Every structure is written in C-alpha cells, then in structure tokens.
Amino acid sequence: MSLRPPSHLAGTSAADAAFDALGHEILAEKAAALGRAGQRVEETLARLRDNGDDELRPRLLKEAAVAVHAYFIQRELCGLRKHDAVIREYNIPRAVLVRLGAA
C-alpha cells in the first residue's frame, strides 16, 4: 500500500509525512482505547447498580474502581485532565471514587 500525504503536506519531506501518518494512527488508537475504557466503565457501573446482593457488592465495587481508574488514566494520556464532567455523566458513585482516593 502506498501512502500519499495530504495536500497540505505536499511540500514536506517523506520522513515528515510518514511521521505525521504515524501520529494520526497513534491518536486514533488513543481514541479507540478511550472508547473501550469508557464502555468498560459503563458495564461495571451497570452491574454495580443492578446488583442487590450485599455479599457480591465489594467485588463489584472493586471492579468498578479498577475500570474507572483505567479510564481516568486513558483520559489523562489523551490530555484530558479534569474528570468532574465525566464523573457526573457516568454518575460514578462516591463509594467507587473513595476507592480511588478521591473524597
């Protein structure tokens, strides 16, 4: 497969164009990983909310905390440092946030 640089890169060297293509691929993978992490947060929080078993709750809290922690790390890798809006959007329970060290 040959790679033709976009028109705005026509005056750049082949090495610069290849680096830009790699940069775009890296950004796409970061975005995809963020989406997968967000999906995992949704799934673990849904299991936590739907469960009524008190014996199972500690394990579900731990799974949710691990998923939220991984999601926050992935967001930070993408340059998104503030998590307040995400906490409200996903309605992340305080019990999960406390396990992450948040108050």
Rank of each mutant, 00 (worst) to 15 (best):
V86L: 05
R94T: 11
A85Y: 01
E55T: 04
V98T: 14
A17E: 01
A32M: 09
R49N: 04
E63C: 05
D16A: 15
R49Q: 10
A67Q: 02
E89D: 11
S7H: 11
I87W: 03
E89Q: 12
L97F: 02
P93I: 02
G52W: 13
T44F: 01
E63W: 05
K30N: 08
H24I: 00
T12E: 13
A32P: 00
R36G: 00
V86Q: 09
A15L: 13
A37I: 02
T12G: 00
H69G: 12
V86A: 14
V86I: 11
T12S: 14
E76H: 10
N51I: 04
R47L: 10
A14Y: 08
R57A: 13
N51E: 02
Q74A: 11
A67S: 13
E55P: 00
A31M: 08
V66C: 01
D54C: 05
L48H: 09
E42T: 13
R88E: 15
L97P: 06
D84R: 12
L3Q: 10
E76R: 15
A95V: 07
G52P: 04
L34H: 11
V41P: 03
K82L: 12
P58H: 03
D84L: 09
E29F: 02
L45C: 06
R4P: 00
L9P: 01
H8T: 03
E76G: 01
R4T: 13
K30M: 09
P93V: 07
R40V: 12
S13P: 01
A15R: 07
A10S: 15
A102G: 00
H83L: 06
D20S: 09
E63V: 02
V68Y: 07
G79Q: 10
L61G: 06
G35D: 14
G101Q: 10
L80N: 12
K62E: 15
S7F: 06
S7P: 03
A10F: 09
A103N: 08
L77W: 11
E55I: 06
L34F: 05
R57F: 09
I87H: 04
H83K: 08
